[in-house]
């Protein structure tokens, strides 16, 4: 009566493993990686300059700021939220960093910006957790406030940063014939740490749980608010690192720089296969997504395509990525 029939019935249940569209879509990294390789191959064929080492190095350097910010965006989207303020946090960071540097030196400048950005993250997180406001609205509000604050702090001026600790992430070094910057190393490190935290620690599993199924996470005894708060504060810290990298790339703090950064990070995350519905995705996907956008923009420029067409191409990619995600979700239901 008990036992054996159960074992047999349950063993029968899973269907035989076949390669299906849904199966392929469930390998989240495969699609983005294929898209990246196809883009690289196509641009290598249609342009002479694309595959040169200095051009590849340039793509990486151009990807650093958005690439770092996209890690924070991934964390937040994994919890089922979205952060429209992330780029504005980083821009405010660059201005405060440059001005504090002028007044009190670079060490304090880095510290002040780190704390400031973490606090802004805490404000976003606090509004999302305690008032239960949708992250979209909260960060839309903080984005607007931060943009105006940045203009006020900057007084509509830009601030040149002297060479030193604040620009160190822009300095180059050589591996073999390949010249790259410490900013690229910083980006890789941020990805490595985020990958480790998300996939190898309990905290990472809880991020997926809170985003994938908030009610189930709560019933499992996960303190969702604590998880959300950590994610928003960490995203603030990541924005501070991005601000530092931005000064390395262009040693001039400009209140009007990186205006599209918010949307570009979302683009990278979505193209990288992370679901906007939360609970599904990875930072490795986001790294690939960042590189896809970088390769596409650089390659189209090399091929002499107008900037506006590049935007159209990126937009098409975003919609395609979200459509694939929807399809995968529908198959799983």
């Amino acid at each position: 009566m008990t036992g054996t029939p159960t074992a047999q019935r349950m063993a029968e249940a899973p269907p035989a493993r076949r390669v299906t569209l849904a199966g392929v879509l469930r390998q989240p990294l495969l699609g983005p990686l294929a898209a990246l390789i196809i883009a690289i191959v196509v641009f290598s064929i249609i342009t002479d300059s694309f595959l040169r080492p200095q051009n590849l190095s340039l793509i990486l350097q151009q990807s650093v700021v958005i690439g770092i910010l996209a890690v924070g965006q991934t964390l937040i989207i994994l919890t089922g939220g979205i952060d429209l303020s992330i780029g504005a946090v980083a821009v405010l960071g660059t201005i405060v960093m440059a001005r504090t540097n002028d007044a009190s030196g670079s060490f304090l400048a880095l510290l002040v910006v780190l704390v400031l950005c973490a606090l802004i993250g805490a404000v976003n997180g606090g509004l999302v957790t305690s008032l239960r406001l949708p992250p979209f609205i909260v960060t839309l509000g903080t984005f607007t406030i931060l943009y105006a604050t940045t203009q006020l702090v900057a007084g509509s001026a830009t601030y040149q940063v002297p060479d030193g600790p604040l620009t160190v992430l822009g300095e180059t070094f050589r591996i073999g014939g390949f010249v790259t910057t410490y900013g690229v190393v910083a980006m890789v490190l941020v990805y490595a740490v985020a990958w480790y935290a998300l996939s190898q620690t309990a905290g990472g599993k809880h991020v997926y749980a809170v985003g994938g199924s908030p009610e189930a996470a709560r019933l499992s005894g996960i303190r969702s608010n604590r998880v959300l708060m950590s994610v928003y504060v960490l995203t603030g810290v990541i924005a501070a690192i991005a601000a530092w990298a931005a000064l390395g790339r262009i040693p001039n703090a400009d209140p009007n720089a990186y205006q599209n950064a918010n949307l570009e990070t979302i683009t990278a995350v979505v193209i990288g296969g992370t679901s906007l519905f939360g609970g599904r995705g990875s930072v490795l996907g986001t790294l690939v997504g960042t590189l896809i956008v970088g390769v596409l923009r650089n390659g189209l420029t090399q091929a002499g395509v107008d900037n506006l067409y590049q935007n159209i191409a990126t937009g098409v990619l975003v919609i395609a990525a979200v459509a694939l995600d929807q399809l995968a979700r529908r198959r799983n239901r």
């Binding site: 599993k205 749980a209 994938g212 199924s213 189930a216 499992s220 609970g279």
Partner: peptide, 17 residues
């Protein structure tokens, strides 16, 4: 309502929290 996390693997679900 099947309080499991669909995207996580079985072992992670069993030990969640």
């Amino acid at each position: 309502d099947l309080a499991v996390i669909p995207a996580l693997d079985i072992a992670s679900n069993v030990y969640l929290g």
